[in-house]
Design a protein around this nucleic acid. Structure first.
Lengths: 170, 170
DNA sequence: GCAGTGTAGTTGACATGTCATCTACCTCAT
DNA sequence: ATGAGGTAGATGACATGTCAACTACACTGC
């Protein structure tokens, strides 16, 4: 979690270590993610029998009008590597949550489609998951703090996509 | 990443879906974490040959006066399960970054100690890692935003440790 | 001093993610 | 039409994380 950045050693060029305030923010952010993620995963598993990745795939598909999506487009929207998505879809297909179909317009391509059980699952899971997200995160924030998270998040994402242009490619 | 929470289905009791602002914050936060984490991992691997977990273990040990720590205490401070830490220490011991010693005061216990190569590694890695953290996160935030992250992070962590008291136990 | 119970740490089986590679197909210039 | 190079997706080997035992030792009350 890289919570401790201040390392006491002697360097040739003294780096710009984090100030106490910066350190506190970084550490709090990292620990928050770790614990929040663990809690949401637990809730999701207990209440709906889904992992977070499961949930994300299902909800991404469920939010599409026809409950279907090209595999690579889905990967891009989710910021997942194609490989990861391919493996995960294989596991979800085993469980009957989604199916893969051939793509009519591109012989290489595949289309993932939500099955009826998959749809029932995400419909049942979503409200419970929102409750968890509220309980452990959103409802603890003031309106101003919510906006700061949105702004900062978008700024950082922009920095990371524009400048570096690194995408998971696998 | 649970970026989409609004699910369009019909529910028996309409849940409190996220508002647009809340949705934006949640999505931005999740995407930020995903991309930021990926970038920091890449930098760390390229510059120092370490994974983030590697870095965290080394820096936790390095920040101790004597470069040593009881295994379970380390796990607790890092918010890792004992099992995860045990596996990871085994791998790091293989690479010569740390060693495990018997504990003098508790026959069951073990103490992890940073080796000389481990110390050199973390001393070299830390300044580079701080630069990445600054470049892609800290230096993009205003002082106010930094404080918001610290406050919110601590609030959420408190909520998750006090109320639920769930800790990784493995 | 010893049974019962709790704790520290490890281990093995398994789930998941990454990376490099492979196949099949598309696209485009010639 | 064809051959070069690019893209979509799947796959296998491997790294990492989780969960449930398991071992060994510590504590407590009798």
């Amino acid at each position: 979690m890289s919570t401790t950045l201040q390392y006491g050693g002697r360097m040739t060029q003294e780096p710009r270590w984090l100030s106490d305030r910066e350190q506190r923010a970084w550490q709090a952010y990292r620990r928050m993610f770790l614990l929040l993620n663990a809690q949401l995963s637990r809730d999701l598993a207990r209440q709906s029998g889904l992992s977070e990745p499961d949930y994300d795939v299902l909800s991404s598909l469920g939010s599409r009008p026809d409950h279907r999506c090209r595999v690579s487009e889905l990967a891009e929207r989710m910021l997942w590597s194609r490989s990861r998505l391919s493996h995960h879809l294989a596991r979800m297909e085993q469980r009957g949550l989604v199916v893969r179909e051939e793509c009519a317009t591109d012989g290489r391509g595949a289309v993932v489609v939500l099955t009826a059980p998959g749809q029932r699952t995400i419909e049942a899971a979503a409200p419970l998951h929102v409750e968890s997200v509220r309980k452990y995160f959103i409802d603890l924030l003031t309106a101003e703090e919510i906006d700061v998270f949105a702004d900062v998040g978008e700024t950082v994402v922009e920095r990371l996509t524009d400048t570096e242009g690194r995408r998971p490619t696998g």
